[in-house]
């Protein structure tokens, strides 16, 4: 039986639109937006991995090994031409793998290498690494002492410093490009399976795989929890209430994840799991895989030999 207050027709409260510019539950919306974006990113990555492109067709083990080799080459080289050559290889590979080259290039080069460049600014100055002047920032004719510290007569950006910083940014960008190429063209399951070639223990691979799997499940659970909370949040919440809300959500999610872990373990036991992970090795090398690996080995070998011979 419905209580009396529920039995009558609901009194329709007058709807008042919130004042423009004020979003009453902005932090909830922002959190939700971020969580949904993460899920969406994963779905998009999986869509790319399923496209019929060049790298998608290569054996994941070959892709992993060649990516590592090319990253090592980018780290070892002392010639900018090699960095440029590797960049060209990544761009062409992205294009042949039907990936959105421009948007990926923007995302790859737009943030991390730029950040690396900013971090490398002190190393460009002559006070840290001496070198030939390129851009003068500060100069005085007599030494100045400031708070007991003797300031140098001039501070300038050195040619060698700029070159080193550009190299660093280039290496970071190339490594990132290769990493992005690998993960966007390989399904997570196959990527993890390819770790066997590096002798990573099966149990370790299984744990990472389960983390990937349940991370997204728990993320979806969190999205639902926050959505439910958002729908019931009609007033302004104080900072204290928000902290409590986040704390209780974390706690609830933790309890759910513990219960889930128990059940998952039982489900594994029910299918014969006794603590030793056995995984399938259903991957076969094709001629194209071997040709690509041979090409990468020749490229890396030639570049390293060239470094030694030409200096």
């Amino acid at each position: 039986m419905l209580p009396e207050w529920m039995a009558d027709k609901p009194v329709t409260a007058e709807y008042r639109a919130p004042k423009p510019g004020i979003n009453r539950s902005r932090y909830l919306s922002k959190t939700l937006h971020q969580m949904k974006r993460t899920v969406l990113d994963q779905l998009v990555t999986e869509e790319y991995a399923g496209r019929p492109g060049w790298w998608q067709g290569l054996d994941p083990r070959i892709k992993l090994v060649s990516t590592l080799l090319l990253i090592v080459l980018a780290g070892l080289t002392r010639h900018f031409e090699v960095i440029l050559g590797l960049w060209a290889v990544t761009v062409v590979t992205m294009w042949l793998s039907r990936l959105p080259v421009l948007s990926l290039q923007r995302r790859i080069w737009g943030l991390v290498p730029l950040l690396t460049l900013l971090l490398a600014i002190p190393a460009m100055l002559n006070v840290v690494v001496p070198g030939d002047p390129l851009l003068n920032l500060y100069s005085v004719h007599h030494p100045v002492t400031w708070w007991g510290l003797k300031m140098p007569e001039e501070i300038y950006i050195t040619r060698q410093g700029v070159k080193a910083a550009l190299f660093l940014a280039g290496r970071v960008g190339i490594s990132l490009s290769l990493g992005v190429l690998l993960i966007t063209t390989t399904p997570v399951a196959m990527l993890l399976k390819s770790l066997q070639v590096l002798r990573v223990p099966s149990l370790f691979v299984m744990i990472i795989e389960m983390c990937c799997r349940y991370l997204f499940l728990l993320l979806n659970t969190s999205i639902e929890m926050f959505e439910a909370r958002r729908l019931r949040t009609v007033g302004n919440l104080s900072l204290r209430r928000r902290r409590l809300l986040v704390g209780s959500s974390v706690g609830a999610l933790f309890i759910k994840s513990v219960a889930l872990a128990d059940e998952v373990y039982l489900a594994m036991q029910a299918r014969g799991y006794t603590g030793q992970a056995v995984s399938a090795r259903a991957m076969y090398l094709k001629n194209g895989d071997l040709a690509w690996l041979a090409g990468v080995l020749v490229l890396v070998g030639a570049a390293i030999t060239g470094e030694f011979l030409l200096g």
Partner: peptide, 29 residues
């Protein structure tokens, strides 16, 4: 003795359907 759990989420712990179905037979050697 095979057991199908009420919540399929607990049973599907790999990241690929094929691997999921292969898990049991592989564990049994």
């Amino acid at each position: 003795v095979g057991f199908v759990f009420q919540n399929p989420e607990v049973q599907l712990f790999t990241t690929r359907v094929w691997d999921e179905i292969a898990f049991g037979p592989l564990q049994l050697g």
